[in-house]
Nucleic acid binder design. Structure first.
Length: 293
DNA sequence: CGCATCCCCTGCCTGC
DNA sequence: TGCAGGCAGGGGATGC
């Protein structure tokens, strides 16, 4: 589910529920997600105020008072939901209301004002950890992450540098988080179709000074920025069950031009081709061989 | 070093 | 209806 637009949608949904508010307690329903959860995870969060929520690549960064940062990655199936504070019962409360747990609710953040932020992740490819904010850029999981494609907007000259000497396919190069951060399988396929470039082409053919490469870089840089901003504006893509933390599903999946559209007519005006599915480095690629060269 | 392959895990869909 | 197999938005480890 979550590529850059979905993570950004999640960030925007969580911000009003968490920023400026304190975490009173953290509940762990299992000792691990993708990786074991740090033994001091709960203690380092309790009582801290979430000062700001940022995004880097596909990571959410919750900056905490006291100099720590909570880093969360949603993997393939992770999502957050907000359960608003319940109104206090009018008369004496005879029981403590137990919130309903859904399957795969692994981590719950209780906020001081009563709201609960629930992390759900069926496949458990997601993970979280707490780190000192000052060391974050040296952290093994954060080190080496590539450029952010939107802020500032990706430049053709950056693509020139990133693809120089790359022996791999354009598709694989764009999926590589060490080059550009935040693209995943959907948005790479969509960006390449918008740019009219074949995912099978060698990435290095976009580097250098010849006319084709210069044009291709310009088209690709624009296509990447445009598809990501369009998707963010649509609240991301909801394939199965993704929804932003506010509970609203995204609707960018209706704007897919190639992803998961094998056999459909190519949507490009005037193109008579059809969308094909091929496998590259073990993952599906959708493209039109007629207009993507 | 770069690249392909396999693997982690659960759920859903297809075909038999 | 049940079951096996394939596939899924990510990315880390391994081996060539």
């Amino acid at each position: 589910m979550p590529e850059l637009p979905e993570v950004e949608t999640t960030r925007r949904g969580l911000a009003p529920a968490m920023e400026g508010k304190a975490i009173s307690r953290v509940i762990l329903n299992r000792p691990d997600l993708r990786f074991p959860i740090q033994s001091d995870f709960r203690a380092r969060l309790a009582g801290r105020t979430v000062e700001r929520i940022d995004r880097r690549a596909k990571y959410l960064l919750l900056r905490l008072s006291g100099g720590d940062v909570l880093v969360a990655h949603l993997g393939m199936s992770g999502s957050f939901r907000i359960e608003a504070a319940r109104a206090p019962l009018a008369t004496a409360t005879l029981y403590r209301e137990i919130p309903r747990l859904a399957a795969h609710d692994h981590v719950i953040f209780e906020m001081s004002e009563g709201a609960r932020i629930v992390y759900n992740d069926p496949r458990r490819f997601g993970f979280m950890f707490v780190a000192a904010d000052a060391d974050l850029e040296h952290h093994p999981r954060m080190r080496g992450i590539g450029v952010e494609p939107l802020e500032p907007p990706l430049e053709p000259s950056t693509l020139d540098r990133l693809f120089e000497g790359a022996g791999t396919s354009l598709k694989a190069a764009l999926l590589d988080q060490k080059r550009i951060a935040g693209l995943g399988n959907i948005y790479v396929c969509e960006a390449l179709h918008r740019a009219g470039l074949s995912p099978l082409r060698r990435a290095a053919t976009l580097s250098g000074g010849d006319q084709f490469a210069r044009t291709a870089r310009r088209r690709l840089a624009s296509a990447i920025c445009n598809v990501l901003s369009d998707a963010i504006e649509a609240g991301g893509s909801s394939l199965k069950d993704f929804s932003g933390a506010d509970g609203k599903p995204g609707y960018f999946q209706h704007a897919f031009r190639v992803y998961d559209r094998e056999g459909a007519a190519c949507p490009k005006r005037g193109c008579k081709g059809a969308i094909e599915r091929v496998v590259q480095s073990g993952r599906s690629t959708f493209y039109c061989r007629t207009c993507q060269r």
